[in-house]
Simulated scan of single mutants.
Amino acid sequence: MILNIALILAAQLLGEVLARLLALPIPGPVIGMSLLLAGFMASKPLAERILPTSQGILAHLSLLFVPAGVGVISHAEVLGDTGLALMAALVGSTLLALIAGALTFVVLGRLTGSQEAEK
């Protein structure tokens, strides 16, 4: 499991290095995730090796929101000044992310010929 996490973090680091070295307008973690996806597509054993670790990380993803929640509470006075604009930005970006995720799922399902995407 430690090696798998190291591989995931190495992909993120490589993406960050490429983003900064080439001055790309794409965040490093996105580049790293794309590189990891390419690695999974090129090597099925790699994907099968990382799968249990990634499922474990996703199962405990909610723990990553605790520091963010503490940060929000510690800056409560700022929320009073800009709360309405912040709420509009959060709701809007959440809706856009859901729409983008759903469309991506449908497009990828059609590209791969998945029966689930057609329902």
Rank of each mutant, 00 (worst) to 15 (best):
E48V: 09
F65V: 05
V70I: 15
V70S: 10
T53L: 01
G56E: 09
S74A: 08
I73H: 14
A76F: 13
V70N: 08
S54P: 01
S62D: 03
E48I: 07
E77V: 15
V78D: 12
A68H: 05
S54D: 05
A76C: 07
V66Y: 07
S74P: 00
R49C: 00
A76D: 12
H60F: 06
L63T: 07
Q55V: 03
P67N: 04
L61K: 10
D81A: 09
E48S: 08
L46S: 02
I57D: 00
T53D: 01
A47D: 02
L61A: 12
L51Q: 14
G56A: 11
E77K: 15
M41R: 11
H60A: 03
V78P: 01
L64I: 07
L51K: 13
P67E: 06
A68I: 14
H60P: 04
P52K: 09
L79V: 14
L64M: 12
T82R: 09
D81P: 05
L79C: 08
P67K: 05
P52I: 08
R49P: 00
L61D: 02
A76V: 15
P67V: 03
S43C: 10
A42C: 02
P67R: 06
L79Y: 14
T53A: 07
S74N: 11
A47Y: 06
L63G: 08
G69V: 01
A59R: 10
